[in-house]
Computed example of a mutant assay.
Amino acid sequence: MLHWLAASRADLVPPAARPGALLVDLACGGGLMAPHVARLGYRHVGVDIGLAGLRTAREHGVTVVRGSVLAVPLADGCADVVTAGEILEHVEDPGQVLAESARLLRPGGVLVVDSIAGTRLAGLVAVTVAERLPGGPPKGIHDPALFVDRRELLAAADRAGLDLRLWGLRPSVRDLVAWRRGRRDVVRMRAMAYSGILFAGVGSKRGTTGRRTADAARTVGP
């Protein structure tokens, strides 16, 4: 499913608008975003604390930097795009990840996130069910206490100078059936109004005025 989410995340990244545009991939792991980032025309810098993942990411053409997503060792305003996928639900302070993302972004730069919502239903689906399925996430990899409060996340984004919009994600049922039958390698993720299990979001860093756009900083659905 990490491959499905990487592809879904890439669909939210705009093509590079200038030569040398930089995408910073927070918690890049083994570099699943690499083929998508290359296609979109960015220089790809991946940040992670795991050496094994960074070695694999480097093999996929990613420029790797070892460091924490809570204190990224990169310069202010260096990035045109920051992605933070499948990481907010693993840190105690998701707002700090957004603050670091805002620091890294140029004014007008784009932030793309996805994570697991802090709801009982999300805990049931992501832990009780998913971790028992063959091929699902390793047992114990998720701590429901760290699942993300979406309202707090939006408030943190606003404080960091980011206009952020969230919505729900689900696998395509048709693709999922085809995948189970061995007919597809990747299952497309579909947007939905309910964001209380898995959610995605796109934000932009405000310019020097700091004004919020009229449609920004809101969540779609309950």
Rank of each mutant, 00 (worst) to 15 (best):
V127H: 04
V202P: 02
V129A: 15
L40F: 09
Q96Y: 00
T213M: 08
V72L: 08
V65M: 12
E59M: 10
P107G: 09
D143I: 01
G196K: 11
H142M: 04
A75R: 15
T63P: 00
V24Q: 07
P171V: 07
E86W: 02
A155C: 07
A27L: 10
E131Y: 11
A17D: 15
R190Q: 14
L146D: 10
P35Q: 10
A214W: 14
R18S: 14
V202K: 08
H44I: 09
A217K: 03
L51Y: 10
G182A: 07
G30S: 14
R106L: 13
H36Q: 15
G201E: 06
A21M: 08
P35K: 11
V47Q: 07
T219V: 12
W167Q: 07
A102R: 02
R55N: 07
A216C: 13
V202Q: 11
F147L: 03
G182T: 02
A21F: 02
A130V: 05
V112F: 05
S195W: 00
G221C: 05
S115T: 12
A38G: 12
G46Y: 10
R218H: 14
D25G: 13
S8K: 09
S68H: 12
Y42E: 04
G95N: 06
V202H: 03
A122C: 12
R218L: 13
C28D: 12
A157H: 04
L166P: 02
S68T: 10
R103L: 09
R190W: 08
G161S: 09
S195R: 13
D185I: 00
V47P: 04
R103F: 06
G182H: 05
P14F: 08
L23H: 04
R170S: 14
L88H: 04
A122Q: 01
S68K: 12
T128S: 15
R181S: 13
V82I: 07
E86Y: 01
D80E: 12
G20H: 01
I116F: 03
L54D: 10
G140H: 07
G136S: 11
K139C: 00
R206A: 12
D143G: 05
M33W: 01
P138N: 09
C28W: 08
R43P: 00
V173T: 14
S115R: 02
A102I: 04
G123Y: 02
R206F: 12
A75C: 11
R39K: 15
A130Y: 04
R218C: 05
P94Y: 08
R120Y: 00
V177S: 11
V24N: 06
L121P: 00
D143N: 15
M189W: 07
P138K: 06
G135H: 11
